[in-house]
Design a protein around this nucleic acid. Structure first.
Length: 186
DNA sequence: AGGCCTCGAGATCG
DNA sequence: CTCGAGGCCT
């Protein structure tokens, strides 16, 4: 499957973003920006960690991909088809020539205080962007998700929190304020 | 069946 | 940003 007209606009925008952010780029961000079907930020992270470099990923076999946790046959197929395209190879060559980082940067603190904990963010935070809060949680070994379920450990609620807050209350999920979150990160 | 990621669309805000 | 629909994985 080639890149359709429908996806062209998004593709171009993602490409621009990838280039602009290249200074602090980690591999997972670049993978996300490629706009591979069924591969968003979560899957990109898993792929970056597994293959370490874009070269390794582009050469990955269907069998190899399918064995990865959370990656099934549909997603694996989507990835191999993407890298089989001539224009993908051209694109990667150009990005490389432009100095875009193609390697995984494994950064993790020794502090795993949030190990095994799942957070859901809702509302607007005062001192963090969503991205920063999310990065912070991950550096402490925790995870962030988009939907509240009984598996959620904490819902970090900022101002103007939405329906996730109600759902958290119904499920009896622990709700924390930004101030409480700060204390947990001290 | 359950969980949640991905993606598109419509409100939000600087 | 938030939400809902759709789809993938276990």
């Amino acid at each position: 499957m080639r890149i359709s007209k429908k996806n062209g606009k998004k593709f171009a925008q993602n490409l621009i973003n990838a280039i602009n952010n290249s200074k602090k780029n980690d591999l997972n961000r670049l993978i996300t920006a490629l706009g591979i079907r069924h591969v968003g930020s979560k899957a990109a992270k898993v792929l970056a960690k597994k293959y370490k470099t874009m070269d390794n990923l582009s050469a990955a076999s269907f069998e190899s991909l399918e064995q990865i946790e959370d990656i099934g046959p549909i997603v694996a197929n989507s990835i191999t088809e993407f890298f089989a395209q001539d224009q993908t190879a051209d694109l990667l060559t150009k990005l490389k020539a432009a100095g875009v980082n193609m390697k995984y940067i494994g950064e993790k603190l020794a502090d795993n205080r949030f190990e095994g904990k799942t957070f859901v963010l809702t509302g607007t935070l005062e001192n963090y962007t969503r991205q920063e809060a999310s990065d912070l949680i991950e550096k402490f070994g925790g995870k962030t998700s988009g939907t509240v379920s009984k598996k959620t450990d904490y819902v970090l609620a900022g101002n103007e929190a939405g329906s996730k807050l109600t759902k958290a209350e119904n499920l009896g999920v622990k709700i924390i304020t930004e101030a409480e979150f700060n204390e947990m990160c001290q």
